[in-house]
Amino acid sequence: MVNSDGQLFTIEGIAAGLIMLLTAYIVVSTTSMYTPGDTHISDMQLEQLGSDALRMMNTPNSTAESGQSMLQNIIKNKETERFRETFLTFCNSTTAGSYDNLQLSADLYYRTGTNTVNKYHLTHSRNLTGGEHAVRVTEWVHLNDCNNLCGVGLRPGVQTVLVEVLLWRD
C-alpha cells in the first residue's frame, strides 16, 4: 500500500543531492584553475634574470676602461660570438656551480638616417621554432660611433640603439 509518508526520504535525498551538486558545479566553474605555469612566475624569473644580465653587461667594471661597458664594446666591434657567450654565462651560472639551460636570440634595433627603425640580427644559440615560451628583455645602449657596424646600416656618430633578447628555457 502506498501512502504519502513513504516518499519523504526519497524526496529529501533528491533535494539534498541536487543542492550539493549545484554548489559543487558553481564552485568548480567559478574557481579559476591556476597552475603555477599560468601565474607567469617562470616568466617573471626569466625576465628579471635577462634584464639583470643585460644591465650588468652594460655596466663598466671600472672607470679605467674610459667608462665604456662590455656591451658597448661588443656592439661597436660586432663581436656577436662574445655577446652570446657572455650572456649565456651570466644567465646560466648558479652559486652552486651547476649550469642552467637558457637559450637566447638577440637583435639590435637602430634608427637609420631616413628615420626608419631597422633590425640587425646579432646572434642566437638555438633556432626559434615557435614552440618556445620566450620572454623579451631589452636594454638601451649608448654608442659613440657605429665602428664595425657602419656596414650594417647604422648612422655614423653618437646614437642610442636597443638590444632586444628573446630568452627561453630549453
Binding site: G6, I11, G13, G17
Partner: peptide, 8 residues
C-alpha cells in the same frame, strides 16, 4: 523510501 533517499 529511506533506502532510496539515502542512496541518492
Amino acid at each position: 523510501d529511506f533506502l532510496a533517499g539515502m542512496t541518492i
